[in-house]
Structure formats: structure tokens, C-alpha cells
Simulated scan of single mutants.
Amino acid sequence: MYTGLQHLHSYLAYLVLLGLLISLGAALAGYFGNKHFSTKDRKIGLLGLIPTHLQWVIGIILYFVSPLGMESASEGFMKNSVSRLYVLEHPLMMVLAVILITVGYSKAKRQVGTQNGFKSIAIFYGLGLILILARIPWISWPGN
């Protein structure tokens, strides 16, 4: 089970990044194109939100069943950069990213008909994407 979850979590990250890039690109195009945020644009925002939430749920499960997660939180784990990454830095940054992305979508969906929906998605999804990219464990990224 652990190996399957680990592979799913690793490869779903590609879908998360793709969804966030599509949503962010569409938001920037709409904002700079002086368009009004529509229901269609709100649905495009879901391309970033849904895979991010799915990834977060799988990550939470993995955190508690993985030997790299909660099990590694023993005395002195802060001195080991790899243990610190998996126990604290990666989970904390991903939770913050999910919160930012969720807030951005929640604000945007109430702004259909204005240009502010694009602005909300662009700002919050952009910040979430930066946090995700900053704390992906690149040492274990699929393909390395």
C-alpha cells in the first residue's frame, strides 16, 4: 500500500503542476485581456484546485504511513536536512499552498462578472505554486 501511495503521490504532482499552470495562465490572460470573470473561467480554476486537494489528501495519508513522515520525527531530526524536509518543511509548505489556492478559488467564485476573479486566482494560485515549487523534494522526484 505504501509504495502505491508513494508512486501515486509522486506522479499526481505532475497533474497538480499542470492544472495550476493552466489555471494561472488563463487567469493572467483574462486579467490582462480586460475580460470579465465568467462561469467558464471559474471551472478552469477548478483544474488547479481539484488535483491540489486530491494530492493533499494522499499526502496526509502518506505522512502517517511513510517511514519518512511522522515516524522520522524523533529527537534530532531538525539537524538532518532530509528528515527536516520530509517531516516539517514539505508538509508545512504544501498545507500553506493548499490554503492559498483554496482561498483564491473561494474568492474568485464569488466574483463572477467582474475582473477581480482573475486577480484572485492569479495572486493566490501564483503564491501557492511558488510554495509548491520551493518545497518539492527534488531529490526523490520521479525521473531523478
Rank of each mutant, 00 (worst) to 15 (best):
L20A: 08
A29S: 13
G45K: 00
H36M: 14
L15E: 04
F32P: 04
L21Y: 06
I44L: 13
I44G: 04
N34Y: 14
Y14P: 12
S23Y: 02
K40R: 07
G25D: 12
L18N: 02
H7G: 11
Y2A: 00
L20F: 07
S10E: 02
L28Y: 04
H36Y: 14
L21C: 12
G45M: 07
L20E: 10
H7C: 09
Q6I: 04
L46S: 06
T52Q: 03
K40M: 00
L20P: 11
L28K: 06
H53R: 06
Y11W: 15
I44P: 08
I50H: 05
H36A: 14
T3M: 12
A26C: 12
G59A: 06
H36E: 15
Q55I: 03
G30P: 12
G4P: 00
Q6A: 13
K40D: 00
I61L: 15
L49I: 13
Y11N: 14
L47D: 06
S23A: 15
I22M: 02
Q6N: 13
I44N: 01
L5A: 08
F32C: 04
I58T: 09
L54D: 03
M1V: 13
L47S: 07
L62A: 12
T52H: 02
A27Q: 10
H7T: 14
L12Y: 06
W56S: 14
L15Y: 06
F37K: 05
G33T: 05
V16G: 11
H36V: 14
L18H: 07
S38A: 13
M1E: 08
R42Y: 02
Y2K: 07
A13T: 14
A26N: 13
A26V: 11
S10Q: 05
G33L: 09
H36N: 15
G4A: 12
I22F: 02
Y31A: 10
W56I: 01
K40P: 00
L21S: 11
L18D: 07
T3G: 10
I61T: 15
Y14K: 02
K40T: 01
Q6D: 11
L12K: 05
L47M: 15
Q6G: 09
Q6S: 13
